[in-house]
Each structure stands twice: as structure tokens, then as C-alpha cells.
Amino acid sequence: MIDFEKIDDIDNVAIKTLVNAPLMSGRELRNTLNYLRRLAIKKNGKKNVEKTLDYWANRAYEISLKS
């Protein structure tokens, strides 16, 4: 059974992390991308990692434009 609250929490953590990405150093950014890949695998499996990362990046971009 899928826990939808958990999925929303994963999305929120990933999107908030990406919104703050421009303030990170190169090393922090590499570590963050590895962390986000692990979250994407946890959420949707290995086959959908790129799709999940693209979704999160798009949402973070939309949020940053609204700010």
C-alpha cells in the first residue's frame, strides 16, 4: 500500500532542497544530487529516476519564479 503522505513529504523535501541549490557550493551540490537520486529511487524505483528529478526541478523552478 502506498503512503501518500510519505510521498508528499519526499516531494516537499526534494523541491525545497532544489530551491536552495543556487546557494550551494560545488561539493554541496554534488552531495545533494546524490541524495536526490536516492530519494527518487525510493519514491518511484530506478527506472523513473530521471522523470522524478525532472518533475522536482520543474516544480522548484516554478516556485523560484513566483518568489
Score class of each variant (00 low, 15 high):
V13A: 01
W56C: 03
E50Y: 06
N44D: 13
N34V: 01
Y35P: 07
K42V: 02
M1S: 10
R30T: 13
R38L: 02
R38W: 00
L65C: 11
Y61Q: 13
Y61S: 12
Y61V: 07
F4L: 12
M1P: 08
D3C: 04
V49K: 05
N58L: 05
V19D: 03
E50V: 09
F4Y: 15
N44A: 11
N20K: 15
N31Q: 11
L36N: 08
K42E: 09
Y61N: 14
R30L: 11
G45K: 06
V49P: 05
L65E: 12
T32M: 11
D54K: 05
P22H: 05
N58S: 12
A40Q: 06
L23K: 15
A40C: 09
S25N: 15
T17V: 07
N44L: 07
P22V: 03
E50D: 14
K16M: 05
A21H: 04
G45R: 06
T52V: 02
D9W: 01
G26Y: 12
M1T: 10
N20Q: 14
K46V: 14
S64P: 02
I41N: 01
R27C: 03
V19H: 04
N31E: 11
N12F: 09
L29I: 10
L39S: 02
I7W: 04
D11A: 05
A57F: 01
I7D: 04
E5P: 07
N48G: 09
K46H: 13
E62V: 00
D9F: 00
A14I: 01
R59L: 05
S64C: 03
N31I: 03
R59G: 02
R37V: 02
L33N: 14
N44R: 13
A57S: 11
I10G: 01
L36P: 07
D54L: 01
L18I: 09
L29G: 12
K51T: 09
V49S: 02
L23C: 12
I2E: 15
R37S: 01
E5Y: 07
L39C: 03
I15V: 14
K66A: 08
R27I: 03
L18K: 05
R27K: 10
K43L: 04
E28D: 15
A14S: 03
M24K: 15
L65P: 12
E50F: 06
K47V: 09
N20G: 11
K66Y: 08
V19S: 00
N58G: 08
N34R: 06
L36T: 07
R38P: 01
N48K: 15
K46S: 13
K16W: 00
E28H: 12
N44Y: 09
G45W: 08
L53T: 01
L39W: 00
N48R: 15
K6T: 09
Y35T: 07
K47R: 14
K66M: 06
G26E: 15
T32E: 10
I15F: 02
A14C: 00
L65Q: 14
